[in-house]
Each structure stands twice: as C-alpha cells, then as structure tokens.
Simulated scan of single mutants.
Amino acid sequence: MSESGSGPAEYTTRHSVEVAASADHIYEVIADAQSWPIIFPPTVHVRREPGPDGTESLDIWATAQDTVKTWRSRRELDARNHTVTFRQLVSAAPVASMSGTWRVDSTGDGTSTLTLDHRFSAVGDDPDSVAWIQRALDANSDAELAAVAATAVGRSDGSLVSLAFSDTVAIASPAQPIFDFLYRADLWPERLPHVSRVALSSVDDAQILEMDTVNSAGEAHTTRSYRVVTDRFELAYKQTVVPDGFLAHHGKWTLEENGDTTVATSHHHVQLDLERLRARLGATDREDVEQRVRAALGGNSVATLQAARAFTEAERSLA
C-alpha cells in the first residue's frame, strides 16, 4: 500500500502472528532490544542508549538479502499498552525513511496476537528500491515475528535458556595491535591451536567468517558469523551457523586501554535448546548445561585472548 503527498511516496506493510504466550511475556522480548541478536535471525548487533520518559536510541546492524545494513532508531516503550513505536533517525539506502509499531493484543486463554507495522519511503521513489525494501520487510518481519513467538513460548515453558557471560585478560600492549590480531581472523589457523580452518570474506562493511574449531571438551564445530566493527576497539559478531543445540550466539570483543595495559574482554550471549543440549552433552540439569557451555565457549575465547597477549607482548618487546 502506498500514500502520496508533497514528499516521497510512503508505503505501509503489516505482518502478524498468533502466539501461545501472554502479552507480558511477548512484550518483554520486544522491549529487550540488546537481546535481539540472539532472538532475531537478521540482527547482528544492537547498541542501546537510554533516553527520558521511556525512550531509547538504538544503533542496529542487521542482514538484509545477503548484505549488512546499519541504522539508528528512536523507540518509545509503553509497557501498559504492550506497544513499542520506532522511527529510524538515520536510514541506510535505499531506505529514505522507516517507522512502525510493535503491538501485542491479548486474545484470552494465554494467547496473544503480535502485529508489526511498517511505514517507509525509498530514496528517489525508485520502483526497484521500493520492491527491494518490501521484499526485505516481508522476509525480515516474518522471521522476526516467528522468533519473538518462539522465544516468548520457550521462555515461558522453560525449554529455552539464555546465557550471558564475559572473560577478561589484561595485556601489556596498546589496544590497536590487539584489535588487529582479533580482526585478522584469516591468520588464526597459524596463530590459534583450536582453529583449524578459516574462510574470510567481506560484504559492505562486514566480515563473513567461516571457521572450524575444537573446544576444550575436544568437540569439533563449524561456525559461520557476520562480524562488524561497532566502535573504535569493539568487534561484534553474530553466528548464522551454530553448534548443535545452540539456537543463537552473539558476542563481541572489547578493548579498554588503562595506562600501559589493555583490558581485553570477550562477551558471549547465547540462546540454547535445553533438552537438546542435555541429551547431547549428557548433562544432568540446566545448571550443568550452562556450566558446560560456558566452559566450552569461554575456554576458546580465553585461549584467543591469551594468544593475542603472547603475540602482541612479544612484538612490543622486539620494537
């Protein structure tokens, strides 16, 4: 549907889904934007800045038809009415403007209707751009609605587990060489013993990293990730191919200089299929699953940071 006026034509879309969960549970998923990378398949990373009176600004990196786009949005959250309205402050071409609303309506008996509306215009009113945006909205909106529904239901019945943690290593080096070590993943097979193969390519301003690794438990995995530089010394990633039992994995590397030392931190945020992992790992309960996942992911990340420390400190001693 399109609307015309003095400016570019505006188009509207609506997507909705029935969800077997309460409006409160669904709204919590929508409101928690920093968890979107482990909920929405297209979302690579979100940076949140809280504002006054229930508002917030979001910088979002997301895939759209095999590209990575980034934009800034302003959101207004209304927990009482279970709505979140949004408007892009800075859009990425071919989008000229984009706004919309998430709305959750209770339908009784523990079920709800989740609706996602969009209003947009295209740069130059170009028909091909309008069609491209509509295709992207159809694909992403359907995926996002399905993901919100699955997450709300899974968190309600306990079948899904979200786990977030971080590990830190102090390195006697400026941040830039450490960041270069982390960014040059194509060199990891010769630098990291737990990495056996890497295929690294790029699209727009993002890296695409496919990698074969062995974790601390001796299990081999192939993963595929989008990686984006989100700040001067911050490298975020979203896995699109994950190990068995993982539903999503988002992480980032952050570096903070403190005098002659850099504090390097690896952050992980995962969503897990509890019963699948219990069966695969032979785990006894949820706590056991979480401990094993943390040990496996954290072990590889710490090994990477320790290798970065050995490499950069050795390079500095030779300078």
Rank of each mutant, 00 (worst) to 15 (best):
I30W: 01
N215G: 11
Y237G: 13
L160E: 08
L255V: 03
T254E: 13
S35C: 11
Q34A: 15
V148S: 06
E3Q: 15
S22Q: 06
A122C: 04
V293D: 05
F165E: 09
S156V: 03
Q306I: 03
L160H: 14
A131Y: 04
D260E: 15
G108S: 08
S73Y: 05
L187I: 00
T230F: 06
S266G: 15
L209E: 10
I30G: 04
S22R: 09
D180L: 07
F179D: 12
D204P: 05
D53P: 03
A131S: 14
F40V: 00
L77W: 02
A199C: 04
S97Y: 02
A175L: 04
L281D: 08
G51T: 02
D109G: 06
Q306D: 11
M98N: 14
T70S: 15
Q306M: 13
Y11P: 01
I178Q: 07
A220F: 00
V195H: 04
G54S: 09
A314K: 12
A150F: 01
V17W: 00
R280M: 05
S99V: 00
I30C: 05
A62E: 15
V19H: 10
V263C: 04
T83Q: 12
D186E: 12
A185Q: 14
A64D: 10
R74H: 13
R103H: 09
I60D: 09
G259I: 01
A122F: 03
G282V: 01
V68C: 13
H221F: 12
H118M: 05
S196P: 03
G245W: 02
T222R: 15
G299C: 06
